[in-house]
Amino acid sequence: MINYIIHVSFTDAAADTVVRLSHELSKYNIAAGVKADDGRAYHLPPGTFIYHGNETINEVRDAVHRLAETIHSGVSVLVTEAASLSWSGLQELPAA
């Protein structure tokens, strides 16, 4: 499986637009959080998502763009393939 980091931004969108997008993307296993090796999970910065899948980078980009356009126009999508992740300062998600 390939790890993708996805960043989505909107032009002139309401504050809840990214929250709505996050909810819709979660239906496709695209997460707004990341899990550390120790099992703890963290929120990604707003508009940033992670996905593990077998699709090509262009397929991921196009699918996210199409879905985001159904929520608000003026969307920009950036997808990168990630071999490893490292972070600091992210807010920890409460334990499930």
Rank of each mutant, 00 (worst) to 15 (best):
I71A: 09
G89P: 04
A95F: 10
H72G: 04
E92N: 03
D37H: 00
Q91H: 15
H23D: 13
K27G: 04
E59D: 11
A83H: 13
T17D: 01
Y28N: 08
A36F: 04
N29H: 11
G74R: 02
R66D: 07
S73T: 13
E55G: 02
T70D: 08
S84C: 01
G89S: 06
Q91N: 11
D12I: 08
G53H: 02
M1T: 12
V77L: 06
T56A: 15
A31C: 12
L90C: 14
R20F: 04
H23C: 05
V18K: 04
V60K: 01
I2M: 09
E92H: 07
Y51E: 02
E24R: 15
L25G: 11
K27T: 10
R66S: 07
N54A: 15
D16C: 14
V34R: 00
S86Y: 09
M1L: 07
H7L: 04
W87K: 01
H65Q: 13
S76E: 12
H43S: 10
A83I: 12
A83K: 13
A63Q: 04
H52C: 09
L93I: 12
T80A: 09
T70W: 03
I6F: 07
V75E: 14
A13R: 08
R20L: 09
Y42E: 02
G53R: 01
V64L: 02
S73K: 13
V8A: 12
L93F: 05
E55I: 00
L25A: 09
H52T: 14
G89F: 06
A15Y: 07
F49T: 02
S76F: 14
A41Q: 06
T80E: 14
W87C: 00
E55Y: 10
H52G: 15
I57A: 10
P94M: 11
V60L: 04
P45T: 06
P94V: 11
I5S: 07
G89N: 08
Y42S: 02
I5F: 12
S26F: 10
A82L: 03
V79R: 13
D37Y: 00
F49L: 05
A36H: 14
P94I: 05
F49A: 02
I71Q: 03
S84Y: 04
R66G: 10
D38Q: 05
R61P: 00
D16I: 10
K27Y: 05
G74F: 05
E55H: 08
N54M: 12
A82I: 03
R66P: 00
S73M: 15
M1F: 11
D12N: 13
D38F: 00
V75I: 08
K27M: 06
Y51F: 06
V34G: 01
A13E: 08
G53P: 00
N3P: 06
N3A: 15
G33S: 15
A83P: 05
A32D: 13
L90F: 11
I71F: 05
I2H: 08
E92T: 05
V60S: 01
Y28F: 15
A68F: 01
S22P: 01
E81H: 10
A36T: 06
I6C: 03
S73N: 09
L78F: 15
H52Q: 13
I6T: 06
A32L: 07
I50Q: 12
S86C: 12
